[in-house]
Structure formats: structure tokens, C-alpha cells
Design a protein around this nucleic acid. Structure first.
Lengths: 210, 210
DNA sequence: GACCCAATTCATCAAGCGTTGACGTGGATC
DNA sequence: GATCCACGTCAACGCTTGATGAATTGGGTC
């Protein structure tokens, strides 16, 4: 039980500790099941202090849920080898996810929270739509650019969901390179292949205008 | 305010009303944010009656969350036209979802609840893995069957997530046939195309494998 | 029609929740 | 070194939650 008032300087920054604890708990438990008291306990801080810094639980969420991945940097340089951009996307995302546990936790939290809370849902929606779109830059042809980016988003989102959130055995146990080999061409297809009405070649024939 | 004891016969079955109300609310709100009182109010019933029938909230969830889609029936007959099985899968799932609002709500609920509650997560995991696997039957070649089915699951799951849960604009506003045209070939690729070690070109492959 | 059990409500519980206001404490400023 | 304010804790409020046990009513059974 620490003394009453302001702490002497030198110790760890309580604000940062709160943010870390909140990010961890939101990731593991989602929004509703994360309690202010639990965050406070993990941060070794009184619960009221959280309100002092972040006003309320939503504010804490907004602060703890900084966009955990710089999509622009993650997907930079893909246009140097447009033919293998699809594989590169999958490889980078998986590598990023599995490399840095901090990012992994934050991204996992974003997914989990985004499905139960509207604020985070917006962040996630933007990440899977707009952010990917701008990040892909010139790789994506002009026609249906938004749709192409969003399709990539659904496939990558579904992959992360199946592998890390739900844990579907076959996807959970596959090696990253196995997934790159299987999904890379799909992403490539979404990026540069014929989607929509185009009857052209490239893939198992898109059933002409039936 | 109804009288105290047992109701006279003739009215609607309260047990069914509870299940309906629970399914609706779980779908809209997820597990945590659905309260027993809200279920009771919508079912026009005292909250204690829910405990009488279903013991506790988890029991209510388990009872209300019957598998909302007979994947076997939904995906039956695909092997009659294996070349277009991919498109058929996407078309049927979207048609099913958009056709019957009851199914739609239940499936949406399953997704939403499955991401916040372990019991429902298991149901969802099985649906996207095992159930799809068995449903696809002979369409899927022998090699990597489980992985193929799971990959289909991730793509379809990601699609539903983006279109109906998150509402990514480009995917939300696309027409079903647009999505069939864009995603059908991908599912086809997962079903019968080369995944894993196969040396052949990615997705840009002449039709007629397997 | 006496008896039993299922169905149904009522009243209430204990626990946990987010939040608040008062109060103490130290660093910074002049 | 007096003053001010950000920092930090304490104690508690008001509310909601899931759950329980007793009380009441009706249908079935013999």
C-alpha cells in the first residue's frame, strides 16, 4: 500500500503502465470483460487514476488502441516486384505477426475488440479497407481499386481470424510458408487479376456473363 | 403483470419465446452485453423462468445457438460440376445469407458471439473447419483436404466479416454476383488448385486440375 | 377431489461494475 | 518558502448483473 500522494520521481511512468496493462487485457478479454479494476491492478495503480488520465473506459480504449501496425511501412516497396506482391503481402503480414509479440498482441486485441465495440470496429474497418488501399499504392490497377484492397482485407482478416483467434486446426498448424504458397496467389489475384466482369484469362474461367 | 402461477394453456410456448428472444439479442449484442433481463423482457417472461429452463446464461447460449445452417445441405451437389464449385459455394452462401433473415441473424450472431465466448468459438471453429470439410465431400482432392477446407473457411469467414459485421464499404456495397465473380475463382483455387508444394504456377493456371 | 409436480412470478441477494469527490503529497515556479 | 497544480489514493455511491428460494397456480393422475 503506497503512500497517499504524488509519487517521487524515478519510478516507471504510471501512465505508460496503464496503457500497457489495458492493451494486454483488451487483447485477451475484449472490451466488456476487461474491467477498470483489473487494469488498475495489473498496472499497480489505483483505479481512479485511470479516470484521471483517460476520463472513462472508452477513452482508455481509444488511447490503448493505437493503430498497431504501420500498414504503409509494412507494405512498402511491393510495386518493385508486382508479380510477387501477393506472396509478399502474406509473408510480411505473417512475419510481422509472428515476429514481434507486442504487435501480435495489439493486432489480436484490435480484432477481438473490434468485433465487440463500435469504436474499435471503425479502426479495424479502416485498416482492412482504406489503409490497405493507400498502402498498396500503385500495385493495384485503377479499376475497382477499393474493391481489390477490400478483398485483400477480407482474405487477410479471415486468415488471421482462423489462425490466431479461432484456431482452426489446419490453419493454425500450417507453417507460414505453406500459407504463403497457398494464399499468396489469391492475394495476387485480388491485386492484379481479373475481378468483376472481365472475361479474360488468368484463372479458372470466370463463367462468362452467365 | 400476469398472475402468479402457471399459465392457462393456449398461449404461445414461453420456452420458445425465450429461445427466440435470446437468439435475437445474442445476435445483435454478443454474449456479454446481452442481459438475462433483456431476454426476459423481450420474451415477456420473468427472468427467473429462464433459469428454470436453462439453468444459467451459458445454458441459454448453448440452447439458443443451434447450428444455424446445415452446411451439408447448403453445399450438397457441388461435385456434379466441380469446375464451378467455387463460384457455387460463394453464390449459395451469399444467397442463403441474404435470402432468409432468420438464418442471417443467427449466423451473424454466431460470428459475433463466437468471437467473444469460448463455447460459441468452438461451434464456429467447427463450422469453418470440420463442417465445411465434410460438406465439401468428394469435391476436394485428397491432398491437404483439411487445409483446403479451412482455407475456404477463412475466405468465406473473412468475407462475411467484412461485408456484414464490419461493413467495409467496398465489400458491403458490392453486388452478390460481383463477389461471386471475384471470390468464386479463389474458392475454386482452394478447392482444386495447387496449394502447398506444387511446382505449378500460382493461381494463374489453366482449369481442370484434379 | 386429493395430491403431486411443473410452470411461473416475486422479492431479494451478493457481487461486481464504472465512476466520483474528497483528500493528501510532492515538484515546480516565483 | 509560499503557492499552485498535476499526481495519486481512499472510500464510497448508485447501478446492474446473474442467480436463488419461497410462494402461488394450474394441469394430470388415481
Amino acid at each position: 500500500m503506497p503512500p497517499r500522494g504524488r509519487r517521487p520521481v524515478g519510478g516507471p511512468d504510471p501512465r505508460e503502465q496503464i496503457l500497457t496493462a489495458a492493451a494486454e487485457l483488451f487483447s485477451e478479454l475484449g472490451f466488456e470483460r476487461t474491467t477498470m479494476r483489473a487494469v488498475a491492478a495489473r498496472a499497480d495503480v489505483d483505479a481512479a487514476l485511470i479516470h484521471h488520465y483517460f476520463v472513462n473506459k472508452e477513452g482508455l480504449l481509444a488511447a490503448a488502441l493505437v493503430l498497431p501496425v504501420d500498414a504503409g511501412a509494412l507494405l512498402a516497396g511491393l510495386d518493385e516486384d508486382p508479380e510477387h506482391a501477393g506472396e509478399a503481402v502474406v509473408r510480411r503480414v505473417l512475419g510481422f505477426w509472428e515476429g514481434d509479440p507486442e504487435t501480435r498482441r495489439r493486432l489480436l486485441g484490435l480484432i477481438r475488440v473490434g468485433l465487440s465495440h463500435e469504436y474499435a470496429a471503425g479502426v479495424l474497418r479502416d485498416l482492412l479497407g482504406r489503409t490497405i488501399l493507400t498502402a498498396l499504392g500503385r500495385v493495384v490497377p485503377d479499376d475497382h481499386r477499393a474493391l481489390r484492397a477490400a478483398l485483400v482485407g477480407t482474405q487477410m482478416g479471415g486468415l488471421l481470424l482462423g489462425r490466431y483467434v479461432l484456431g482452426i486446426p489446419a490453419v493454425r498448424d500450417a507453417t507460414p510458408e505453406q500459407l504463403v504458397a497457398a494464399i499468396g496467389p489469391v492475394v495476387q489475384h485480388y491485386l492484379t487479376g481479373p475481378i468483376g466482369g472481365a472475361p479474360a484469362a488468368g484463372i479458372n474461367k470466370p463463367r462468362g456473363t452467365a
